[in-house]
Design a protein around this nucleic acid. Structure first.
Length: 423
RNA sequence: GGAGAGGUGUCCGAGUGGUUGAAGGAGCACGCCUGGAAAGUGUGUAUACUGGGAAACUGGUAUCGAGGGUUCGAAUCCCUCUCUCUCCGCCA
């Protein structure tokens, strides 16, 4: 959520910035500022009345203490009218509050200055590329065929147990998952991220904290009996660790990581790119999360991008890094880098990581702050990224490392898998 | 799941209707004291919104788990929810 102060002081800047998303904020912000002005005047009025009420109550207390019951009762009569007025103003203020909040929820984050305007993924900028395209010398199989051929992943069995999008990994397929998770976590730890194993279900407050609620409710599985949500990403529990936290000084840099399964309903996305591992309802991911002083955000983002790049390089995958254009950048993000690996067998790029800076957009909701040099509280910046999401990495590894008689395991993973080839 | 006890500031802990944003203590910060330190001593020590002020600062409002209610007035009384602890039951 944007900061209302920012809108008051720099409405034009926000409107201009949001144009890069092809988002016309003008009408919302105009309405918002009007409501805000009303809100402030009502609020001032209300507080004046409350002050009077408090004063009278105090006096009544003193009168009773002095035994002047009659005067006290007379004073009580004065409050009747004030009380009515107070109630009326209070409900008006609350109503305005709610309207303002609903409008605030509709405004996405303002893109960073480096972000180019654009409508869709077609406008994303490729900022770097690495790795070589694989030459096969035979007709490569897509991963779903390889999964069947070597009995690594059983999609149909998953359908029987749960439904589409919940595959069952078997044998070396399962071991490969475990190896990747361990490898990613070890690399994150090496880079200074502290490992956490968070809950895989979260409460409503956490959903609001990172912005999944109220809007993206349909994306999450909801356990209605207990009103808990299955996490769509570790970002939710990991970032919410710092909900309602005020860090004591400005000397901080928090780096945490965690592996979790992720659950996404993906409602309405059937039929497109859903084959095999490309889009699942449950998948594994190692996430990295940072909480930074605003001065350090740009550097932190670069470090995260380099971290992910390092993983893809070690895995020997052909990849490219995209800086998303305004229109493709997530609602809460100020700037996002996507990582894609090339699948020669599917002849397309697969998104395997997304690294974003949110600046104060999340921390405003989370009430995550620090004490600055002036002893004032100030919002922290949050960042997060996948390092990495497993399914498409698995798909790319299987496809790119296939030979005619098996699938090779990249050198960095062999100590985790215990085998160097699947055949 | 059943029964009971509780949730007060950074922490401990008072407080059962009235100048209580909240005693007291600890911790922390700054000052005094000291050759230096300890001890001692003084002051300060929540968050948000809003008004005034260039700022230091200052007026107001709200906040004692959350939300409602009673009352001129609620940390204190009533209701709902939630969390923690103890006992019983169940159980990996």
């Amino acid at each position: 959520m944007l900061e209302i102060q920012e809108l008051r002081q720099n409405a034009d800047g926000v409107i201009e910035g949001l144009k890069k998303r092809h988002f016309d904020a003008q009408p919302i912000i105009t309405e918002l500022l009007g409501l805000d002005e009303q809100w402030r005047s009502r609020k001032t009025e209300l507080e004046g009345i409350s002050a009077q009420m408090n004063q009278i109550s105090k006096e009544i207390g003193i009168l009773f203490k002095e035994g002047k019951a009659e005067e006290a009762n007379a004073a009580k009569a004065k409050t009747v009218e004030l009380k009515e007025l107070e109630a009326k103003l209070k409900s008006e203020v609350e109503e305005l509050d709610e309207k303002i909040l609903q409008l605030m929820y509709q405004l996405p984050n303002v893109p960073n200055e480096l972000v180019k305007a654009g409508k869709s993924e077609a406008d994303n900028e490729i900022v770097s590329e690495g790795g070589d395209q694989r030459e096969y010398g035979f007709e490569p199989l897509p991963h779903w065929d390889l999964a069947a051929k070597y009995d690594l992943i059983d999609f149909e069995l998953g359908v029987k147990i749960t439904g589409a999008g919940f595959p069952i990994y078997k044998g070396k397929g399962a071991k490969l998952q475990r190896a990747l998770i361990a490898y990613f976590l070890d690399k994150a730890e090496e880079a200074g991220y502290q490992e956490h194993i968070p809950p895989h279900v979260v409460n409503e407050a956490s959903g609001y904290g990172t912005g999944q609620l109220p809007d993206k409710e349909g994306q999450m599985y909801h356990c209605t009996v207990d009103n808990l949500y299955l996490i769509p990403t570790a970002e939710v529990p990991l970032t919410n660790i710092y909900r309602d936290v005020i860090l004591p000084n400005e000397d901080f840099s928090i780096k945490i990581t965690g592996y979790t399964p992720c659950f996404r309903r993906e409602a309405g996305s059937y039929g497109k790119d859903v084959r095999g591992l490309n889009r699942l309802h449950q998948f594994d991911k190692v996430e990295i999360v940072r909480i930074e002083h605003p001065n350090n955000t740009a550097k932190a983002l670069d470090e995260m991008v380099e971290h992910v790049r390092g993983l893809l390089q070690e895995l020997g995958l052909q990849y490219r890094v995209l800086r998303l254009c305004g229109g493709d950048t997530g609602f809460a993000s100020a700037m996002t880098y996507d990582f894609e690996v090339f699948s020669a067998a599917q002849e397309k790029w697969l998104e395997v990581s997304s690294v974003s800076r949110f600046d104060t957009f999340q921390s405003n909701r989370l009430k995550l702050r620090f004490k600055n040099a002036d002893k004032k509280t100030q919002l922290c910046h949050t960042l997060n990224g996948s390092a990495l999401a497993l399914p498409r990495i698995v798909a790319a590894l299987m496809e790119n490392y296939q030979t005619e008689d098996g699938i090779l395991i990249p050198a960095v993973l062999q100590k985790y898998t215990g085998f160097d080839k699947i055949s």
